[in-house]
Design a binder for these strands. Structure first.
Ligand SMILES: [Mn+2]
Ligand SMILES: [Mn+2]
Ligand SMILES: [Zn+2]
Ligand SMILES: [Zn+2]
Lengths: 140, 140
DNA sequence: TCCATATTTGTAATCATTACAATTATGTAT
DNA sequence: ATACATAATTGTAATGATTACAAATATGGA
């Protein structure tokens, strides 16, 4: 996937979202930083490029992008939301040592089902917690 | 599983936790109310039986019980922690209509693995969100 | 009974998130 | 181009869950 302003622009337009500078930059950040950032991480970075940006705008934009299906929102840490521009079906691993969140390719047996045991499924989250490969190697 | 004070007592003792009245009551509540209550739900109920109980005690106790492996902690809603005395491997469904959290028996392909792609796995959370069977029937 | 220690309690602080109103930017009709 | 209604952004205050911390209380063993 190529990250350029043109594609980001089209992505927003395809969902009838006005491609404002703030929205473009937030989406650009997410595409360039696929480490599942927090609102604050996005905000603090964008502050350099857009000194007037408000954290409320970051919150509002991410909520809206989520509702439009352009980003996904994780609550794996339990303390703050994490955002991911990759909306395809995948799972996540949280390292309790370094705090990194890693994408996992796990085949969930009911991943593509619209219904399960009578319940309509709209979202699916697979969260794993433990110690990541890199941290295990470092402590050897 | 029978919920009586004797078994709760033993459960705590087996983890070298002093079975105080507050701890027993919190664990008893969880065993009798398997609807994944919040801290506040537990606190407000126990207030009737233990008028002097502090919400801090509920927090401290649940954190301790979790660390001892006697309860599990869910962050499915994103706004507050939910607790579950059933620590066996199972997944959860959150209904965005009624807010209920339902146990799901989903076979995760890596449920019993200690390691996955080099990462040591200590916790596994499967969260599904949508509209539950009961709410679907009601709106027909 | 005495005492060191564990537990509980109450209050204040923290931190993420939301509410809300004021300001600013934008698209469209004139 | 101008005016205006509307959308978007901003700043600040409020909310709510959780944590920090110190004082009060309870407990088990000497
Ligand atoms: Mn991801
Ligand atoms: Mn459960
Ligand atoms: Zn790590
Ligand atoms: Zn429901």
């Amino acid at each position: 996937m190529i990250t350029n302003m043109e594609s980001i622009n089209n992505k927003l337009l395809s969902k009838n979202v006005r491609p404002t500078y703030q929205r473009m930059k937030i989406l650009e950040y997410l595409e360039k930083n696929q480490n599942h950032p927090t609102v604050d991480m996005i905000y603090r970075y964008l502050l350099k490029e857009i000194p007037t940006i408000s954290k409320t705008t970051v919150y509002n934009t991410l909520t809206m992008l989520f509702e439009k299906g352009l980003v996904s929102c994780l609550n794996i840490t339990g303390t703050e939301s994490r955002f991911d521009c990759y909306t395809g079906n995948h799972h996540h691993f949280l390292c309790e040592k370094c705090g990194n969140i890693i994408d996992l390719d796990v085949k969930c047996p009911i991943a593509d089902k619209k219904k399960f045991q009578g319940h309509v499924i709209k979202e699916l989250h697979g969260y794993f917690k433990g110690i990541c490969k890199k941290c295990l190697e470092n402590q050897k």
